Amino acid sequence: MPYEWTPKPPHTTPDWSLSLWPYRSLLRRDFVLFMGATATIITLPLLTVLGTAVLWALLPFFAIMFTGLWYALNLSYKRGEVLEELHVTAQVAQLIRHNPKGPRQDWQANRYWVTVHLHPKGGPVENYITLRGGDREVEIGAFLDAAERLALYDDLKRALRV
């Protein structure tokens, strides 16, 4: 799961933290390997036309394709640099969202009044989770998939009862 509890559940104290981040199927190390393999695969057909004018006709298209692939994957990584941190003490619950671009978003409420809500169909994504406390309702874990959000909902319900 792309989230981590501190300390690990079950929570015996009312003080705990939860960190959430988007799932990454292609790690940075694998990105380098993938791009290296792609460059090798692109180069092999060019070896057959080495020393001819055809090489110069094909080379720009291969370079554009490789650059476009690198740019798209790099852009995907930058957009996915989201981190949500939920810190709960005996008195306060605080959610901090670190966005890839833009300001940090904070939400804070009295822990006693914080409730977690699951919206199976009504939200922007399936199994949408919100925290309600004070005068605001905020989303949590919208970047997780539907099954992960269901598991997170159950975990949050249990954790907020302590």
Rank of each mutant, 00 (worst) to 15 (best):
N110M: 03
H87Y: 10
G51L: 03
L73C: 09
S25N: 13
R79M: 05
I42P: 03
M1Q: 10
I42D: 13
G36I: 15
S25D: 15
L156G: 04
T89R: 08
I96Y: 01
L18E: 13
P103M: 05
H119T: 00
Y153K: 06
E148V: 06
P7V: 10
L95Q: 09
V54E: 05
L156R: 05
L152Q: 07
R79V: 01
T6H: 13
E137Q: 14
L26H: 12
E126Y: 06
L73N: 09
D155G: 04
G102N: 00
F61E: 05
P22K: 06
V114A: 02
G141T: 05
Y3M: 12
E148F: 02
R132P: 00
Q105S: 06
N110F: 01
L33W: 14
R24M: 08
P103Q: 05
R136L: 12
P9E: 13
I96D: 04
A109G: 03
V88L: 02
A146G: 04
I42L: 14
E148P: 09
G80T: 10
L27Y: 11
W21T: 07
L50Y: 14
R149G: 06
L55P: 09
R158D: 11
H117Q: 00
S76A: 10
G68Y: 14
P7G: 05
P103D: 09
L47R: 11
A159L: 06
R158V: 07
G102Q: 02
K121G: 00
G102E: 10
L50W: 15
W113P: 01
Y23R: 15
